[in-house]
Design a protein around this nucleic acid. Structure first.
Lengths: 219, 219
DNA sequence: CTTTTAGTTTAGGCAAAACTAAAAATTATT
DNA sequence: AATAATTTTTAGTTTTGCCTAAACTAAAAG
């Protein structure tokens, strides 16, 4: 696999995130990257010359098969590094994203594989997101949003969506972590807020915007 | 501490390596960096605008106090990552340099300090080179070249100079590692080659060019 | 004391990657 | 359908960092 610039890799990542099936608009991509539309036009031109994307002017950009594979390999690195930072170095799960963004650009197949081995070939990162495998296969995306469960069920938190540091602060304040189990006490039909009871007996109220970013399975 | 480009950091590193006390010539720096002299002239101009070096045209470049501190912080990262790669991920000591060159550019004070803690705040890297401390203090440079010891003494290998992959291959072939002890059986006054006996009774002959890159202390 | 040589700097280009401003194409609205 | 609003592209700049070629400096050789 050839080597790519960080900028290229960032565009590939962004495209993958915005959907690897449907074409992505210049504007959406610009917003996600944090650049102006004109810069994006130039960038995707460069990417298409490397066969990482196909561009239809005025219509949109789409990753090629090669581009998708590259995206997954970057995501693999990103999520393995996040796992390392949390599990091995003791960072908080709200701190690791910007660091992983730097580490994911380090080029070395062997490093990635050794890291994966060292971590025990994890299938999911500290946020519960699936870590792509060497071959590009994706482990399952875990859980459903809390709102999908019915009153009376016991659930286990398995994933949280990265919704900014305030979200994580809130989770920490409520002592909510992956693996925690709760009884669903109520789900408001009015504002979709959720009421949980922890095994220690504490009751937790979650707003809709909180609960929508928390995913769980039946315990 | 401000943030610097990788190119800048590479120049700072090179300058430090070529000697932080005496001024360095454009040519030496160019060779070390792997760029042309003209590129170096421009680069050091940029660096001097950031107060990282002082330049006297046609005479030479020298790191400022600020530059030396930056150099040490990069070296600290480099050597901590090398330690991690060897001790934690099981890389060979001959493999880690290019990887550490990438990892050393990751910007995060906290990451460095957590890494150091995780590794047990090592003072020397897998080659026996001193790891600068947070404050810039340098642990001792270990050992003397094998040729400095006299016949009959028992010595312990504590450091090897990075002299390319063939050198490391040779060390591996001879099973020479940091911490190994040997008896000095002979030092040739003719070609400065060295003859060692390992505890297991094997005798090893080292050419001058080999022994000059191997450092030891009295065991 | 001039000339040659080695080393350094300037000058001018090129590529990547960003920007602004203006033109063109698309989509939405009367 | 015609016009307005939005989006995208083009065109021209900027910065970083490299290059080659030409000019310059300093030191060594004649």
């Amino acid at each position: 696999m050839k080597t790519h610039t960080e900028s290229e890799e960032n565009y590939i990542k962004a495209l993958y995130h915005l959907g690897s099936d449907n074409p992505v608009s210049n504007g959406d991509l610009a917003q996600r990257i944090g650049a102006k539309g004109s810069s994006v036009t130039q960038a995707v031109k460069r990417l298409s010359q490397k066969n990482l994307v196909t561009v239809v002017p005025y219509k949109g950009v789409q990753l090629t098969k090669e581009g998708i594979l590259l995206a997954k390999s970057i995501l693999r690195k990103h999520r393995l590094w996040e796992t390392f930072l949390v599990d091995t170095l003791g960072f908080g799960w709200d701190q690791v994203h910007p660091l992983a963004e730097q580490l994911e650009h380090v080029q070395s197949e062997e490093l990635v594989e050794r890291l994966s081995d060292f971590l025990g070939t994890p299938k999911h990162d500290p946020h519960g997101d699936p870590i792509p495998e060497r071959n590009g296969q994706m482990p399952p995306v875990l859980g459903e949003p809390l709102g999908a469960f019915a009153k009376g069920h016991t659930i286990k938190v398995v994933r949280v969506e990265d919704a900014g540091s305030e979200f994580f602060d809130q989770l920490d304040a409520m002592n909510i972590n992956l693996g925690n189990t709760y009884d669903v006490e109520a789900i408001s039909s009015f504002d979709a807020s959720v009421q949980l009871k922890s095994p220690s007996g504490h009751t937790i109220w979650l707003s809709k915007s909180m609960s929508a970013n928390i995913y769980a399975v039946h315990a």
